[in-house]
């Protein structure tokens, strides 16, 4: 731990204490919501109004401003869940466990959105709602992985054991993430290849790219907001016998 400067280490130690975390999230929440709204509005205006129509797909391509960020988030949140789960397993930090399990429903929702918008786009473009293409299938499997995590957490009564089990499951499921990512190259069928992450030269025009990135950022903030709200509830429920929760409630009811 000598590599980490003292103030940063102290910040994380304080963050791991439930009352401090609760107070901090309460203080951050308005800022997060404001940033999210600004990004969302500018992203939507840029994507739906300012960006030019695609020369092949017309206006129907605009669904990517929801679809692509949601698909990115579905993977990102799974990674976050696994990392938080690993931190919880290794250092036994209760808050990391709570962050891991609070991420799961948000991730499942984004995965679902990515699937639905993808199939809505697929109907006019490919002429079919669903193809058994590798990326679609992997996304569906990712949804099942999320549901497995949520189901496992719900099935175990002791929440301490449950978070441990969930962390292990998430870590095992991470094996699936590279398969999703490389499936495009492995069995390339109908789904178009990645257009943004090509490092040398993105094959998407800059006026379309900027709203896309704004939307991706907005979705990230939404994830943080939704996850923190869930984490706060989960924290209150788990710590309901703790002194600080009792104090909080009596202060609020007074």
């Amino acid at each position: 731990m000598f590599l980490i400067p003292e103030p940063i280490g102290r910040f994380f130690h304080r963050l791991a204490s439930p009352p401090h975390f609760y107070a901090l999230t309460n203080r951050l929440m308005p800022w997060l919501v404001a940033l999210f709204l600004i990004l969302l509005i500018s992203g939507l205006v840029g994507g739906l109004y300012l960006a030019p129509a695609d020369y092949q797909q017309g206006d129907s391509y605009r669904i990517i401003y929801i679809h692509v960020p949601a698909a990115w988030m579905s993977l990102f949140i799974y990674m976050m869940m696994a990392i938080a789960g690993a931190i919880g397993l290794i250092w036994r930090i209760k808050l990391a466990e709570i962050v891991a399990i609070s991420s799961a429903p948000v991730g499942a929702a984004f995965t679902f959105i990515a699937l639905v918008t993808g199939s809505l786009w697929g109907k006019p473009m490919w002429g079919t709602w669903w193809v058994w293409d590798a990326r679609l299938t992997s996304e569906l499997i990712l949804l099942f992985l999320y549901l497995g995590v949520i189901g496992l957490y719900g099935a175990i009564d002791d929440k301490k054991t449950a978070s441990k089990a969930v962390a292990i499951l998430a870590l095992v499921g991470v094996v699936n993430i590279p398969i999703i990512h490389y499936s495009v190259e492995w069995w390339s069928t109908l789904h178009q290849g990645a257009t943004v992450t090509k490092m040398d030269k993105p094959s998407i025009h800059v006026s379309m790219l900027i709203p896309l990135l704004l939307m991706a950022l907005a979705f990230k903030f939404y994830y943080v907001i939704a996850m923190l709200q869930r984490a706060k509830l989960e924290l209150l429920q788990r710590e309901r016998t703790a002194q600080w929760v009792k104090k909080l409630i009596t202060e609020q009811t007074l």
């Binding site: 299938t137 499997i141 099942f144 992985l145 549901l147 497995g148 189901g151 496992l152 099935a155 175990i156 054991t161 089990a165 292990i168 499951l169 095992v172 499921g173 094996v175 699936n176 398969i179």
Partner: peptide
């Protein structure tokens, strides 16, 4: 992960089948 549960059967298939896909 599920052996301690009373009704682990259903949840087991949800956990294991996605991992079998590859």
């Amino acid at each position: 992960l599920t052996v301690g549960l009373r009704r682990g059967g259903m949840i087991l298939s949800l956990l294991v089948l996605p991992l079998y896909v590859p």
